[in-house]
């Protein structure tokens, strides 16, 4: 009896003690991460918003609120650049989605786990390790006047003079953006489609759903969080891409990111901050639009809850 009560006593006291320790550790960790996030992410963005309402004087600022920076940057050619950037990003994101969705579907549901799948997944990570400039510059030797495409077209007699809209053009920028941002679109789609229980797809087939009906009524709605994430992960970094337009636009087709370089080079920090806060606004609007779209289609937390069940 004494042995039993002794063990139960020990068992009764020990767990709360460990729980208290774990709790305080957890709390400290959460506070630390929140603090670092505030200092590292929120503070710069907030200071951007502040600086955007100041006027520059040399490398310092005049500390009186003003909308000068905004009126400085919102001139005709820059509005044109912003609209062009938005158009190109929207179109390339759409192209990425159209290419990535069938690919992710095949990867997640069509392909059995094995070597092929592993190799493809590794290949999808590789672009993240390559220098953006290195993988972009390759297009020059393919699209240039003496590049691969023009050589083939010329030698086959399809064209007499090299096509010069291939490089340093909007075409080149579209093409150059597709490669680097393909994994950003594929990954969230692949993960969200993988999470869909095969039984749900079978149930849809069993109840009379054709392949297309099953895709539209079951797979797409359940993959919606991944579709949203894919669009955001692709479009947002693409808005700030300054490599592709610099290397493949050749100064003829400027995108938004290059404007930052220009403004900073001209030491117009307030202007750069104003443009950056505008970009943040665009990104927030994009995020809100995607969320609203999900809501309208009745997608909410239930989807995730359903996956766990």
């Amino acid at each position: 009896m004494s042995l039993v009560s002794a063990t139960s006593d020990r068992g009764g006291v020990a767990p709360p003690a460990t729980r208290t320790i774990r709790f305080s550790l957890e709390g400290a960790a959460i506070r630390l991460v929140t603090g670092l996030w505030a200092i590292g992410v929120l503070l710069p963005i907030l200071s951007l918003l502040v600086i955007a309402f100041l006027r520059g004087r040399g490398i310092g600022f005049i500390w009186t609120p003003s909308l000068q920076a905004y009126s400085d940057i919102l001139v005709g050619f820059r509005i044109e650049i912003i609209l062009r950037t938005l158009r190109i990003v929207a179109l390339v994101t759409l192209i990425e989605f159209v290419l990535a969705f069938p690919f992710a579907l095949w990867l997640a549901k069509g392909l059995r786990a094995g070597w092929t799948k592993s190799i493809i997944l590794v290949l999808l990570v590789v672009p993240f390790f390559l220098s953006p400039a290195a993988r972009t510059i390759v297009w020059r030797s393919i699209l240039g006047r003496e590049g691969l495409v023009n050589s083939v077209l010329m030698s086959s007699g399809l064209v007499d003079t090299p096509l010069d809209w291939l490089l340093f053009s909007q075409f080149a920028i579209h093409l150059g953006l597709i490669g680097p941002y393909f994994p950003s679109m594929v990954w969230p789609l692949f993960i969200s489609i993988s999470l869909i229980d095969d039984e749900l797809i079978k149930a849809s087939r069993d109840l009379g759903g054709s392949a297309w009906q099953t895709l539209w009524l079951v797979v797409v709605p359940l993959a919606a969080p991944g579709i949203a994430a894919g669009i955001l992960f692709t479009a947002i970094p693409m808005l700030g891409d300054n490599v592709v337009s610099a290397l493949l636009g050749g100064g003829r087709v400027a995108l938004l990111a290059e404007s930052f370089d220009d403004l900073i080079r001209a030491m117009n920090f307030a202007g750069a901050a104003a443009l950056a806060s505008l970009l943040v606004l665009i990104i927030l609007a994009l995020g809100a639009a995607v969320l609203a779209l999900l809501r309208r289609n009745g997608i909410n937390g239930d989807v995730f809850r359903g996956m766990q069940a």
Partner: peptide, 20 residues
Amino acid sequence: LPANLRNVSTVFQHFALFPH
């Protein structure tokens, strides 16, 4: 005949109800 054209229906072990 593929599954969707057969007039039989399955009740799955884990029900396979559409969560959305």
